[in-house]
Design a protein around this nucleic acid. Sequence first.
DNA 1: GTTTAGCACTCATTTGAATAGAGTGCTAAC
DNA 2: GTTAGCACTCTATTCAAATGAGTGCTAAAC
Lengths: 342, 342
Amino acid sequence: MLSERQSMILNAIVDDYIRSAEPVGSRSISKRGDVAFSPATIRNEMADLEELGFLEQPHTSAGRIPSNKGYRYYVDHLAPLNPLKAEDLKLFKQLAAENLNAVEEVIQHAGTILATMTNYTSILLGPEMFNTSLRHFQLLPLSETTAVAIIVTSTGEVENKTVTIPEGVSASDMEVMANLLNAKLAGVPMHKLKARLYSEIGQEIQRHADHYEKLMQLLDDALAAGKDQKVFLSGTTNMLIQPEFKDIGKLKTVLDLLEETPTLTRLLNSEHKGIQVRIGSENVHQAFVNCSLITATYSLEGESFGTIGILGPTRMEYAKVIGTLDLLSRAMSRALTGRYGA
Amino acid sequence: MLSERQSMILNAIVDDYIRSAEPVGSRSISKRGDVAFSPATIRNEMADLEELGFLEQPHTSAGRIPSNKGYRYYVDHLAPLNPLKAEDLKLFKQLAAENLNAVEEVIQHAGTILATMTNYTSILLGPEMFNTSLRHFQLLPLSETTAVAIIVTSTGEVENKTVTIPEGVSASDMEVMANLLNAKLAGVPMHKLKARLYSEIGQEIQRHADHYEKLMQLLDDALAAGKDQKVFLSGTTNMLIQPEFKDIGKLKTVLDLLEETPTLTRLLNSEHKGIQVRIGSENVHQAFVNCSLITATYSLEGESFGTIGILGPTRMEYAKVIGTLDLLSRAMSRALTGRYGA
DNA sequence: GTTTAGCACTCATTTGAATAGAGTGCTAAC
DNA sequence: GTTAGCACTCTATTCAAATGAGTGCTAAAC
């Protein structure tokens, strides 16, 4: 599609612009050394590249900046595989070395590392329901009318929910039920729990107790605990140091969205495995038009488990971020499989 | 200390400045109606007030703005008790009406209401250890080497921590210990747990098991769960709409601090009960010099339980915020005592 | 004695014109 | 095909002048 030379020039422009955040002109490209043509020649090519939609010009007498299409070409064809620096690798080692017992600690820590290394905002999604199973269930009365339901998953996540005890249900009823659930449903994948509750436990309860309706309602409610994926953010304030967000209005749009956990979950989840890059308007959400979101999935024993992502301006260090995400997602998969694999 | 008229003028200036964020001049005060003097007279008083340290002048030809001392006088002597608007009261009703079972839900919800009503940032501190007791303890093996410790408090909070199982300790050992803890320590205040662990459980364990050291270490570790107070933030992006934070540098200082949970906990906690106002440099932390922090405590059966606070610029709507915090802290105390009181 | 009108003065902000500078597009020469 | 040269465009900077809000002081009025 693009000639060799056009590619080189596009590459040089994106590269320069990522570094400087300033429109780049033909002169500076010519002086870089890797494109040994005169400014005039480069100008001609730049005009072509603009016509093709890879570049934009803020105004007639300014240099060019990459368009979304330009960035897209850059990441698809040009972005160099970026070997990480030694100091960065050190941080990874920490992740493996530190004695992090809980999955959530691993995720949280990985998020911090990501944000620190890249100077962008990291967004990590915890385990999906699909890939954990029930380890233990407990129903503990708190008062006459309320009880707390506790669910422990196969990965050691503990979720809880306070529920209202229906009229006429006794503490011993609840104990019986909890025991029943543990006996029948331990090891069942979380996303199948509700279905199994009705198919397997329903009859049993009918046999044991009078308040079938109420009890099922209670259990149904209790099992809702831990249904939503958790979101871990780190480095949100890194957004502030990006020159593209010196405009507080734009900044607020993005930061506001970062507070909306459900929306974030939706935006980060995708069937796509591996690395995914969404540039500017490729993001569905309006608030992210000036941003790029790069995500990777991590897994437990080969099963996709959660997502890690980096949010930054479209003028983002793609090579570095992609490299980092790739390595970190692998490191997380290893760390998790090492601990919770069969 | 101040004459009647000086007070009136100071009040008018603070009032105006809170509304406009612009230095206020003698003319506009004179035209307000509540201070029926000519601009010249008011100018004289303003000069005096400046000399006394209640006002500041950005430059010679600008109006005056309140100094920290000025704000302080305003909140101590002048701030009117602000009756809440009907729409605001409606939000409070919601807090009572909604069926919020868990303490954390109540707190979270209260935080959102606070931020929405005031357009500032709300910071809420969860229950202090001192005021909850142990309801239930559990130790659940996850793998050969790890187990998850679960603590349920008297208020239904569920905390968990993944711990490493010391060599040679069996699943049945752990079960015995958990039972022992529940039998001996249920109802003991959280902050006394560790002490009681050694004084009461220590001997028992010595009798039952060989691995005294290791077991005590394990339990000690497990009981660390839920030790720190949780922090709930809401409306952090409201900080962005304040004109005093149009300077991204200042903004970042504040937002960065908001991410530091332990520091926040420290800043919000104070022995002081009831409403507390910290204006500008009265805040210990450097990052808050341009901010005011207003806090109130809420309680469970009269025992101080946690803290709710509002962070905004020193140019803050003190009357409204103080009124809101006062009402909301009472509402929370009522809501909690109603649910978890004896 | 207190209050206020009047006025000169200060200083940040706005305005507009001139200038500088970066970069382009085009043409003609190499 | 490449490049030097140059006119042109447009932004950003600079600087002076004008604007205007607000003050402090003085002297007159109450």
